[in-house]
Design a protein around this nucleic acid. Structure first.
Length: 278
DNA sequence: CGGGCTGTTGACTC
DNA sequence: AGAGTCAACAGCCC
């Protein structure tokens, strides 16, 4: 599932491959994934020139002369940049460009492509109310964010209104690196634990970005990332030994999501789950 | 063959 | 504010 590292890598590819190109034609097979009518969407982007692409959490933000294009790949969505003759079987939105090239957008689940008028990103659309990118928050700001918060650390980190870009794939190794159980109540976190968590967020996300993002996702040219199963510490490693202490990694239910943890390195002290703290 | 699992976002409720 | 639930809908696995 694309999270911040994947989006960062896709944005780099879009800047390399798409910046400066002109959109000649837009086609939509699944109007549901748009926020406006097909006519309005195509009307805005046909004839437009593509500018820079930036990242807001799990959203790709592409400026064009016809408005801002927002792409959310949901779970397992893909972008494909190919010659028109190599049109894939499955696609939901296509942008035909100059030089016979096309950008195909294919969703697995829950993906969307939005048109937002230039300059209104912060006031309307899905980016309004989104928290800062997880990699853009310094330690002081992170400490302030958590100050006075209640609830559990995992659900806080996954909430895109707080921090944008962390999803249920990278969270496992982030919490493991910080030595935190996903259900730890935020008020029970020590200053040292908060500092370690801040460091872990940066380190784990950047580790994947450096390797070109997750290997189960592919880039605009169809190339897989270099961050694979052997790079994971506890995530999706149920029954395998913890890399730090050798204890069996467990898969547990944490609310509506699953979590992979080392029960030894990420203890949930019963004294610390006092219901009054939640 | 079928049902459970996967896990994003936003809306909604308590 | 936070936690829970649901709905959107594809494909894999057993």
């Amino acid at each position: 599932m694309p999270e911040l590292p994947e989006i960062v890598c896709r944005s780099r590819e879009m800047n390399e491959l798409l910046c400066g190109r002109t959109i000649s034609r837009v086609d939509v097979r699944q109007p549901k994934c748009l926020n406006v009518s097909v006519k309005a969407f195509a009307g805005a982007f046909e004839g437009a020139t593509i500018g820079a692409t930036t990242v807001r959490g799990k959203w790709l933000v592409t400026e064009t002369t016809g408005g801002t294009l927002l792409i959310n790949l949901g779970m397992g969505g893909e972008l494909l940049y190919v010659d028109r003759d190599a049109t894939p079987e499955k696609w939901h939105v296509r942008f035909d460009l100059d030089e016979n090239m096309t950008l195909f957008v294919n969703f697995w689940w829950f993906g969307s492509t939005h048109l937002v008028p230039t300059g209104r990103l912060e006031s309307e659309g899905p980016l309004a109310g989104l928290g800062p990118n997880a990699l853009d928050v310094d330690l002081k700001a992170f400490q302030r964010m958590l100050n006075g918060r209640r609830g559990r650390i995992k659900s806080y980190l996954l909430n895109q209104r707080h921090l944008a870009g962390i999803g249920n794939a990278y969270i496992h190794d982030i919490l493991f690196s910080a030595g935190l159980h996903p259900l730890r109540a935020i008020p029970t976190l020590s200053t040292g634990e908060i500092n370690g968590l801040h460091r872990a967020i940066r380190a784990e996300l950047e580790r994947s970005i450096e390797k070109g993002s997750a290997s189960y996702e592919v880039g605009l040219l169809g190339q897989p990332g270099g961050f694979g199963a052997s790079d994971l510490r506890v995530g999706y490693r149920e029954g395998k030994p913890c890399p730090r202490c050798g204890t069996c990694v467990e898969k547990i239910k944490t609310g509506s999501t699953a979590s992979y943890i080392c029960p030894q390195c990420q203890p949930l002290d019963p004294g610390e789950v006092d219901e009054k703290e939640l």
